[in-house]
Design a protein around this nucleic acid. Structure first.
Length: 310
DNA sequence: CAATGATGCTGTCAGAGCAC
DNA sequence: GTGCTCTGACAGCATCATTG
């Protein structure tokens, strides 16, 4: 076995990192071989060589395929980060070659999709038209792993509760109100007062369990001594939620800016304020231990500038 | 500097072992 | 038998050292 330090510093190659990530994703040597355009023994040998030189077993071979060991799983996390960083370097170089100043990949949570990001992007493009922006919309449970792997540099949306031990840095922008909304044709939309008892007979659109908004909504039901609705759809997509409300008879909590935006267009009705509002902080998240690209720093500065001015 | 041979790396092919 | 992985023999290619 070679020295671990020496091997990682001078012998570990990108090929090995690609192999580890592909094995973790596909869990099958044959599929990894096809994916990497090599033969199956080439994959098997490369992994064996890696394990021998590191002196640790990285994957357990089972009849159902490959399962990462604790060592393999740990190495895969870093391999993904390194490959993501290289991807960013490639994008940055491509951008420089094509005359673009840089690129930032942003994860957008639903609260950010309609108001926060479009406003910030418009401001950023005025300031730096040649900065490229790539947006990935999703829920916290899908975006956070991609943030940790370095694929996404910044997430904008509802902030999780403060955790000093977290590896994610949070920056507060503003407090967002969640309001109840229905389609503009819904009978409840015409009423001056709506009770929770009336609401429980409607179908609901709820955020998934992993979503930050799910718990406060469940608490609101408990506070009114009501069971969670049995007729519900789980969705985190703003566009789909608006479409369902528009074409059906469901109700849903939406970020205030989103609900009022579609209410002005005549698509949705915002229910009367007799229903208590849910309040949640909206802001920016990025990894504490990963350097931000100049483009990501510019986006964060633009966002802070907009919301500090109010 | 160019040509040549040695060496190492990475790959393929063929076949074997193992579990179901 | 099927599906999976591993091993041994060998080949192609790039790099390095040596020599003229």
């Amino acid at each position: 076995m070679a020295s671990l330090d020496w091997y990682i510093r001078s012998q570990l190659k990108l090929r090995h990192l690609q192999l580890l990530v592909a094995l973790d994703d596909l869990r099958n040597v044959g599929k990894v071989a096809t994916y990497l355009h090599v033969s199956q023994p080439a994959v098997s040998k490369a992994l064996s060589e890696l394990e021998n030189n590191i002196g640790l077993k990285l994957f357990n071979r089972t009849v159902h395929g490959m399962q990462p060991t604790i060592y393999g799983g740990s190495l895969v996390v870093y391999a993904k980060r390194i490959l993501a960083e290289l991807g960013k370097a490639r994008d940055e170089l491509r951008a420089l070659i094509s005359g673009v100043e840089g690129k930032v990949t942003v994860g957008a949570l639903p609260a950010a999709a309609v108001a926060v990001l479009p406003k910030a992007i418009a401001a950023l493009k005025t300031q730096s038209p040649v900065t490229a922006i790539s947006i990935i919309e999703g829920s916290m449970d899908t975006l956070k792993p991609r943030l940790r792997e370095g694929e996404i540099e910044v997430i904008v949306g509802l902030l999780p509760e403060d955790d000093p031990l977290s590896d994610v840095e949070t920056l507060f922008l503003y407090q967002d109100n969640m309001v109840l909304a229905t389609g503009s044709h819904h009978p409840l939309g015409q009423k001056k007062h709506v009770t929770w008892d009336e609401l429980r007979h409607s179908p609901w659109i709820l955020p998934p369990h992993a979503s930050l908004m799910r718990q406060p909504i469940e608490e609101e039901f408990r506070r009114h001594r009501l069971a969670l609705p049995s007729d519900y759809i789980e969705s985190v997509s703003t566009m789909i939620n608006v479409g369902i409300l528009q074409h059906g008879n469901a109700v849903a909590f939406l970020p205030s800016v989103v609900a009022h935006y579609y209410a002005r267009l005549g698509v949705l009705a915002v229910l009367p304020p007799s229903i208590p509002k849910l309040v949640h902080p909206v802001g920016i998240m990025h990894m504490k231990n990963q350097a931000l690209s100049p483009s990501a720093m510019l986006l964060i500065a633009t966002l802070k500038n907009i919301y500090e001015k109010g």
